[in-house]
Amino acid sequence: MRSVQGKAGGYVLTREPGSITVLDVVEAVDGPGQAFTCTEIRQRGPLATPAESCATPCAIARAMTRADAAWRAALRAVSIADLVEDVGSDSGPRALAGISAWLTAPNA
């Protein structure tokens, strides 16, 4: 993808829609980093755990890492072409033509 500046800007696909996953789009917009960043709160506060006792990720960090991996796998399994097909199936055969007309209208 590449970005287009201006009032009618957005993103332009630089590959075939079938080869671009929803995860590709998310990473192009938000970056490839994980959604959750562990800040080791267990090492702060009145009941802080000593750093040497925190050699492995805590239960919350492990759960969030698993959730992030599952989310990424699900987004990796859906392509832009799949979304286009789903719009046609969900909204009828004229939906894509209407969307295209709306996106290309001078006042869009």
Score class of each variant (00 low, 15 high):
A28R: 03
R72Y: 00
A95P: 06
P32C: 08
A73N: 04
C38G: 03
R42N: 13
P93K: 14
A51Q: 08
A81D: 14
V4W: 02
E85Q: 14
V87D: 06
A95V: 06
E52I: 09
I41E: 12
M1K: 04
T14Y: 05
V29Q: 05
A77I: 01
G88Y: 02
C38S: 05
S79C: 11
P46W: 06
E40W: 12
V26E: 13
P32F: 08
I20F: 04
L83E: 13
A59R: 08
D90E: 13
D90P: 02
G31N: 04
A70Y: 04
I60G: 03
V12P: 03
I41H: 11
T65A: 15
V26G: 01
C58Y: 03
E40V: 13
V29N: 03
A48H: 11
R76W: 04
P17F: 01
R76I: 01
T14K: 04
M1R: 02
A51C: 09
A74Y: 07
D30A: 14
G9F: 00
A101M: 11
S100I: 11
S100Y: 13
V29A: 03
V29M: 07
L96K: 09
V22R: 04
W102V: 13
L83C: 15
A35N: 08
L23T: 02
L47C: 10
C54M: 10
P106N: 07
Y11M: 08
A67H: 09
A95C: 11
P93T: 06
T37R: 12
V12F: 11
T14S: 15
V78N: 02
Q5R: 10
G31K: 07
G98T: 03
P46A: 12
S19T: 15
L103V: 04
S91H: 13
I99F: 14
V84W: 07
R72F: 00
P32E: 12
T39S: 10
Q5L: 09
C54F: 03
L23Q: 15
K7A: 15
A81N: 07
L103P: 07
R66T: 07
P32R: 12
S100T: 07
G88W: 01
V4H: 05
A28N: 06
I60W: 05
I80C: 15
D90K: 13
V12H: 03
P50F: 00
A63P: 00
D90C: 13
M64D: 00
A8F: 12
D90Y: 10
N107E: 08
K7I: 13
A61W: 01
P106E: 13
K7C: 06
R44T: 13
R2D: 10
T104C: 10
M1W: 09
A67V: 04
V29T: 06
L83D: 04
R15M: 06
I80T: 10
E27L: 06
A59Q: 10
S53Y: 11
A101E: 15
N107V: 11
G18L: 01
A61Q: 02
E40Y: 12
Q5H: 09
V25Q: 02
I80Y: 05
R94H: 07
D68H: 00
E85G: 14
A67L: 14
V29G: 02
R42L: 03
A28M: 08
D86S: 12
A51G: 05
D24Q: 04
G45S: 07
